[in-house]
Design a protein around this nucleic acid. Structure first.
Length: 181
DNA sequence: CGGATTTGACCAGCGC
DNA sequence: GCGCTGGTCAAATCCG
């Protein structure tokens, strides 16, 4: 599965839509998003060989860290737009509509970091770990530890560049971040 | 002692 | 139907 580079500009950076975890994520993370990556609905398709990382660490580095992140946004939603930017971004790109099961919203990004876990402002409880095929690395499963909030995320290292961490968020927080910026 | 993590078992979906 | 694979559960364990 290929990633599609997209305009790195996020017009709504830091905006606070209530039910939009996309913007929530943007606002809670310090680092700059340097590149978006958009995959169509097979989020796990990078078993297919490809050159999915042209690591152009474009000049926009974070001010405090040297992390660079790429963002893959894939909302499997067909028509159920889950509000706002994420879906609109997808509309701009390739959006293989339909067919797959509908997931509320799924956003992934790839971050150059030595830490497996990054503090994104929410509290996560780890509930599983799995070795996935075609990857020497393990995938970790986290759930938002807030009651009634079923947001999940997975964290795994890039298959062939283990200095990158791929974080996939799934779902929408029904509460504010414990830390409000 | 309470909450988080670990880890193997279990389950569901899919392809053959 | 079976086996493979990814995702989740939950009991045991860890750790503050």
């Amino acid at each position: 599965m290929d990633y599609y580079y997209v305009n790195p500009i996020n017009p709504n950076y830091g905006a606070h839509h209530d039910d939009d975890d996309y913007s929530a994520m943007m606002s809670m993370s310090d680092f700059m998003i340097s590149d978006f990556l958009v995959a169509d609905d097979d989020a796990y398709g990078y078993g297919v060989d490809d050159h999915h990382h042209n690591n152009q660490e474009s000049g926009s580095q974070s001010q405090s860290t040297n992390e660079s992140s790429e963002m893959a946004a894939f909302s499997d939603v067909t028509t159920t737009n889950n509000s706002g930017e994420a879906s609109s971004i997808n509309n701009n790109i390739k959006c293989k509509n339909g067919s797959k099961k509908e997931v509320n919203s799924r956003v992934a990004f790839r971050t150059k970091s030595e830490l497996d876990v990054m503090d994104d402002g929410y509290r996560w409880r780890k509930y599983g770990k799995k070795a996935v095929k075609n990857t020497p690395n393990l995938r970790n499963y986290y759930k938002c530890s807030s009651e009634g909030c079923g947001v999940k995320k997975r964290v795994e290292r890039d298959r062939d560049d283990s200095s990158y961490v791929i974080t996939t968020y799934e779902g929408i927080h029904n509460h504010a971040s414990p830390f409000t910026y």
